[in-house]
Design a protein around this nucleic acid. Structure first.
Length: 140
DNA sequence: CGCTTGACCGGAA
DNA sequence: ATTCCGGCCAAGC
C-alpha cells in the first residue's frame, strides 16, 4: 500500500467534510475558508504547521470542485470579502439576494452575518475540532 | 512530467 | 485601510 494512495484518500475526506460543513451554512449567513478549515483535524502524517498554513487554501480548492448542492456563495475570505476571480460578481449577486449587506468597501460584516459554526456537540459527534470558546472579557 | 497559478491566512512593513 | 511574504499544497496546462 503506497503512501500516495493514502494521501489521496485523506484529501477526499477533507473535501467531503468541507462540503458537509458548507451545506450547513444557513441562508443569509456567511462563513470564511479559514473557519471551515479550523473544524477539520490535521490528517495523519501531515506536518501540523504545514497543515495550518495551507488548510484554508485547500478549502478554496474544495469549493472550486463542490457539487451542485453546496452553497459555495456563502464561503468568503477572512477579510469579509469575496475573493476576486471569474464568478465573483455572481457570488455577490447571490448573497445580495439573500439580503446580505455589503459596505462601501464591498465587505461583509462578519459580526453580523458570520455563521457561528455547527456547534460543539455536532462537531464532537463527527470527530471534528471544537474551537476554543471566545474568552470572556471580564473588564468590559 | 515540470512549471505556473491560485475561491487562503496571519504576520510584518 | 494596503502591500508584501512565507507556507511548499492542488489543479490546470
Amino acid at each position: 500500500m503506497s503512501d500516495l494512495e493514502l494521501r489521496d484518500e485523506q484529501r477526499d475526506d477533507f473535501y467531503q467534510t468541507v462540503w458537509m460543513i458548507a451545506r450547513m451554512i444557513p441562508k443569509g449567513a456567511v462563513c470564511t475558508y479559514g473557519q471551515i478549515a479550523g473544524y477539520i483535524p490535521c490528517p495523519q502524517g501531515i506536518d501540523p504547521d504545514d497543515y495550518k498554513a495551507y488548510r484554508a487554501r485547500w478549502v478554496g480548492s474544495a469549493m472550486a470542485a463542490s457539487p451542485g448542492d453546496v452553497p459555495w456563495q456563502r464561503v468568503i475570505n477572512s477579510q469579509g470579502k469575496i475573493s476576486i476571480r471569474d464568478g465573483a460578481a455572481r457570488q455577490q449577486a447571490l448573497l445580495k439576494a439573500e439580503e446580505i449587506f455589503f459596505d462601501e468597501w464591498q465587505r461583509i460584516d462578519l459580526k453580523k452575518f458570520g455563521w457561528n459554526g455547527p456547534g460543539s456537540e455536532w462537531l464532537r459527534e463527527h470527530h471534528l475540532v471544537v474551537p476554543d470558546e471566545p474568552e470572556q472579557l471580564s473588564f468590559l
